[in-house]
């Protein structure tokens, strides 16, 4: 991780943690503006932060991790692409992918912490194999969503990311199903309360899965792309994108 990106993460992480799911534009918007976060992707020459797509990934993911209630990713994207355009839709799909990745990791951390603490039948829930196997599956899905988000950011850095954003949003969408299901299952009733901090994550996850292309939308688009290119182009095409 570059030094500026680490700095960015060290600034955003505690701030988003503090603002979190209760943040409002009226009360907290100014703090984000002060730090220059909405101008993250604008060139320094234009008074922006001059960040790249990996920087954007870091901020989007942390916004997801802390279920930041202000749609900062949308503010950042709006400064690089006009709303209603194809580019704007794709970049917002990337943003939601990164937010899903972050929120899944946060929900996983909550779940692991909870099952290691909560005792039933004289031992922590985390000692039960059934619980372990569910959470292992969840961890794999969270990992896949995170890798997909990174892959899309890398493609944006290279230039054309049409294929990667489609694949990444679709993969992240699919991870939401297992992630939210297992997180709630291992938490039991407490995870279903308004008081406990799981629902700000899981309810956002369900929202982000729908926004900027649900599973059907992206699988149709990606599938059509692949079928139109033809079977013999799939693998050479995939490798040529990274070589």
């Amino acid at each position: 991780m570059s030094d500026t990106r680490r700095m960015l993460a060290e600034m955003a992480d505690p701030l988003f943690a503090e603002l979190g799911a209760d943040a409002t534009m009226d009360r907290d918007g100014a703090r984000l503006e002060q730090l220059g976060l909405p101008a993250l992707l604008m060139p320094e020459a234009d008074g922006g932060f001059g960040g790249d797509w990996m920087d954007a990934l870091t901020v989007f993911r942390l916004a997801g991790y802390h279920a930041l209630a202000i749609d900062l990713p949308a503010m950042i994207v709006a400064k690089t692409a006009g709303e209603g355009t194809e580019a704007h839709f794709a970049l917002m799909a990337f943003a939601r992918t990164a937010q899903i990745a972050g929120a899944l990791d946060a929900a996983l951390a909550l779940s692991v912490g909870y099952v290691n603490e909560r005792q039933q039948f004289g031992r922590p829930l985390g000692k039960f194999q059934a619980v372990q196997q569910s959470l292992a599956g969840f961890a794999c899905e969270a990992a896949a969503a995170n890798c997909a988000a990174v892959g899309a950011a890398q493609a944006l850095e290279r230039g054309d990311a049409g294929f990667e954003i489609a694949a990444a949003k679709l993969r992240a969408n699919r991870a939401v199903e297992v992630g939210t299901t297992v997180a709630h299952q291992v938490h039991g009733a407490i995870g279903f309360t308004h008081e406990y901090g799981l629902h700000p994550l899981t309810r956002r996850l369900w929202q982000w899965r729908s926004e900027y292309g649900n599973d059907a939308y992206w699988s149709k688009r990606l599938g059509t792309m692949v079928v139109d290119a033809g079977a013999d182009s799939f693998w050479p095409g995939l490798t040529a994108r990274t070589d």
């Binding site: 896949a144 892959g151 993969r171 699919r174 149709k220 599938g223 995939l238």
Partner: peptide
Amino acid sequence: PALAELVGRLAAEAWTLRLMSAS
């Protein structure tokens, strides 16, 4: 169209797994 959708879903997974394995 149902086959195209399945192709899309499996392609997304292949792309993700390649990234993970190579990483």
